[in-house]
Simulated scan of single mutants.
Amino acid sequence: MKILLIDGTIIGSKTGAILDQVKVYIEQLNSELDLEIMKLADFQHQFVDGRPLGEYNDDMRLLVRKFEEADGYVLATPIFQGSIPGVLKNAFDLLHPRTMRYKPVSIVANGGTFQHHLVIENQLKPILNYFRCLVTPNYVYTTSSHFGEGNVIIDEDVHDRLRELARVFVQYAEMSTHLSKVTIDKH
């Protein structure tokens, strides 16, 4: 199974640090999963405006292809101004509604205040529900206080929650293999 670990921002490094740790925990549970970290910062983005996919640049088409080829996702996002980054929403806007259908998704996020975890519930989960993803019931939200020098996660409770997230994600990934996959019409 191909699992895409998505760093959903173009600036900062905390979400990447969380993804790196989740990757380690997933590998410990199931070394047969093919894990790839994809950083949105590595792509030349264009605003999604409804035109056919073929009219976007190579990076935007590659972004879609990576989403389509993946069998599951771990999504990492910072919370900016009480919302997900525009670049992440822009990426979602480019995807066909069936791209992520019946595929497992786990969420990790980082924000400046404890209250911003509600962005996951009120913005991100509805988007993923629209795609009909298998969203794991647990997510991990962190703040700057959970990190030490070099953006190393220093909070043991966060590590415990990331281990549990990885465990549940692996179970969802295994469960998803028994669901019929929907053929996606090319844009």
Rank of each mutant, 00 (worst) to 15 (best):
L165N: 05
L95T: 10
D34L: 11
N110H: 13
S145L: 10
G8N: 10
Q28D: 15
L134T: 04
L40N: 11
M1I: 09
Y73W: 14
V135G: 07
R61H: 11
I84R: 02
I120R: 00
N57Y: 03
G8E: 05
H178R: 12
Y102G: 01
M38Q: 06
V140Q: 01
E27R: 09
D42G: 14
A109K: 01
E68N: 10
R61M: 04
A109E: 09
Q28E: 12
H178P: 03
L179E: 09
L179F: 15
V108K: 00
H146E: 11
E55A: 05
L88Q: 07
Q171S: 05
N151V: 09
T136E: 11
R161S: 12
K66Q: 13
I84Q: 04
L33K: 10
Q28P: 02
A109G: 13
F47S: 14
F67P: 02
H117P: 02
N129P: 01
T113H: 13
D42Y: 15
D160S: 12
H187Y: 15
L179C: 08
L63P: 02
A91L: 02
V168R: 00
M60I: 04
R161M: 10
V22L: 06
L19Q: 08
V135P: 01
S144E: 12
L124E: 04
M38V: 11
T113W: 00
V24A: 14
N151C: 07
I153R: 08
P85E: 05
L162P: 04
H187L: 14
Q81H: 15
K103N: 04
Y56E: 07
R61V: 04
F80L: 08
A41M: 03
L95N: 09
P52V: 15
I79V: 08
V48H: 03
D7N: 11
I18A: 06
L5M: 15
H187T: 15
I26F: 06
D34Y: 11
G148Y: 12
